[in-house]
Design a protein around this nucleic acid. Structure first.
Lengths: 212, 212, 212, 212
DNA sequence: AATGAATGAGTTTTCATTCAT
DNA sequence: AATGAATGAAAACTCATTCAT
């Protein structure tokens, strides 16, 4: 992200990033088209390359926003909360479902980074995102152990990983057609699609199993 | 897959498909290069287009082999088995770890199909694979309920979905650098990488929770 | 230069190289346009990139041909000759004038490589060419000393360098408009251009000065 | 060069021109980047286009300064001098070596204008420069004939051209890597680079040959 | 007068697909 | 059936120039 981008009016900056996110979400990193990003963002090809060094830099910038968005929209409000672990995760899942309506592209991009196609880029791109999540879950588990919601003998990391896995599964279910199809196959019927809320509910059932 | 491909000697057929799989695994569908596939397969560019209608058809064919391979290497031997659910899943996970050594490419490609980049292709491509898995898990759950390993009140689909999710998580952990990095962050240290067997063990711990 | 280029019919190969040379000669390396090269060569854009790794590789290939052409057309016939040094250089200059008619592009490209614009590329590109020339001149000087045409006390390298400098000046005069203008300014009149033969003659006069 | 440029403080004007010269010297005319010129000159893109009609006009302006600089630094002090021709040329060569330290860019740009890439621009750009040089050399030759340093039968223009050619060769040797490499090949060794003073000395040896 | 963001045509390069042999 | 050279549209990226402020 270049200086020229940082000094843009916030509105325009967000518009450009969300246009780029939309294109990356629809096509994945490699199949995404810089010209289409520009068109959707309402800027010239040249402008984009004034704002960002290259296609990869655009992708990375989206990730930075994504880290902030996911953290602030999912985790931030629960730091220091004294709600039950169950209640907190429930709300996180519900918030994620909301997020899927306003920022579906972010979730889609998240599913892209887990693909083997992104093995080259992903480690450097997604580390910060995962570290933030890990920190949150570990804290939550420790709190859960204090309140007795989580059994003492469970390893902190194992429980945290378990929670994060389920968050991941929900993200994939909300954003990836392959995962949506799987869910449909298990719980759906031909005439109705499984609602996002139902996806959250189904995964909460699994989550519950780690709680005593 | 064209008739010309079907009448090829089985050995050559497999060689071509595994070469293609290798390339798709390394780069993902869109970033994979048809010319490189041909080179690795030791055939001419023209030959590939005699054997397959286009790039997509090659990808689809690989999926067909993948379905068979995964089913026969992971599930087939346990159909009708009277081993415990726990034992069966353990063995499936162990077999998957073995598979990761001989057919790493298949697992990588599987992580590709879950990406948003593949939303256009994935439903038609992966349905059969998931249906096979679902059938197996549902049967296993029913058996588990009979033997008392799984509580009666648990919904068949929920438990099956739970098992399949964990299989998925293991596949992703074995094949995707992003998922490997996550695991490393939770359970690893700087100086040693988490072994594949350890990944299976960690996910088995989660699986166990659904078993009474 | 790729294998695909080497196996082309010689006629086509030469046609492509001479088309490329024409474009490089007209515009210099950086201003030369790959698409125009393709058009002039009567091949598709893609074909060029099957034949050569990139624009630079095309340039380098032209140099290889140039080395051979210049050496065989200017120097080769005089190796082992027992003509006088003066006679030999005279003939080289006359041959160069002929070459300027059939291969003007080569000479133009040679003037390009001496420009500061080419400081990055030139050392690796032109070394072989200069080494060949140096070898020839040194031998000639030694012979000239034996026959008494060149005074013994003159350093071999100094005389060789002197000859090569004059060859260079002739090349530049034949190919570069800037050098042509200079000549015109010294020896020309408004209504008639200095003929190439006259350029050679004028520089021979300088060359003569080193001969006793 | 527009009026707006002429009314700039001299210091700023020179700073801009020397920044532009630096960029042209490094990259040659076509490869030079207007934006980089602006950056190095510490002015805005827009400002440059207020000062100059276009890139070409900047280049031409540099040439004007170059003409003055070369003339005043190399030739001016010797007009009307009664030193020997040899002494004068020696000093010019020494001054050129000094100039190469303070105004290396000018010399580099001079090598650019001799390239075929500049055939379109060069005649109109460099005429004045060459005319100045020619005038000086012709006068010097005439004086040399009077003092007997140069033989009477030598044509004025031929001698003048000879001197100018050697000045040219020295400029190229000082500024172009290709010419530096040539020199190195003739007179250098692997472990030490030929110093600029040595280059001047070597070419003086050739110059001497025209002096009786 | 000065800015520097914006433009968009132009650049080099890639690649799925075709087709003459 | 098989080849692999050829295609050309499309990709990412650059850059001289303009223009609203």
């Amino acid at each position: 992200m270049e200086h020229t981008f940082k000094i843009l009016p916030e509105e325009k900056r967000e518009f450009i990033l969300s246009a780029a996110a939309r294109v990356f979400a629809k096509n994945g990193y490699y199949h995404a088209n810089v010209a289409e990003i520009c068109k959707q963002a309402g800027i010239s090809n040249g402008a984009l390359y004034k704002y960002f060094k290259n296609k990869e830099a655009v992708y990375r910038s989206i990730f930075e926003v994504m880290v902030d968005t996911l953290h602030s929209r999912l985790f931030a409000k629960h730091v220091g909360s004294d709600a039950s672990v169950y209640e907190i995760i429930s709300e996180i899942f519900r918030d994620l479902v909301d997020l899927a309506r306003t920022h579906a592209d972010f979730l889609a991009i998240y599913t892209d980074v887990g693909s083997c196609a992104m093995n080259e880029l992903s480690p450097s791109v997604s580390r910060k995102l995962e570290e933030g999540a890990r920190g949150f879950w570990i804290d939550l588990v420790r709190k859960g152990k204090e309140t007795g919601e989580i059994k003492k003998h469970v390893m902190d990391e194992a429980a945290a990983y378990y929670f994060d896995n389920h968050l991941n599964l929900l993200i994939y279910s909300l954003a990836s057609r392959h995962f949506d199809m799987r869910l449909q196959m298990y719980f759906g019927s031909d005439d109705e699609k499984i609602a996002d809320e139902e996806k959250a509910r189904l995964l909460m059932k699994s989550v519950k199993m780690i709680l005593s």
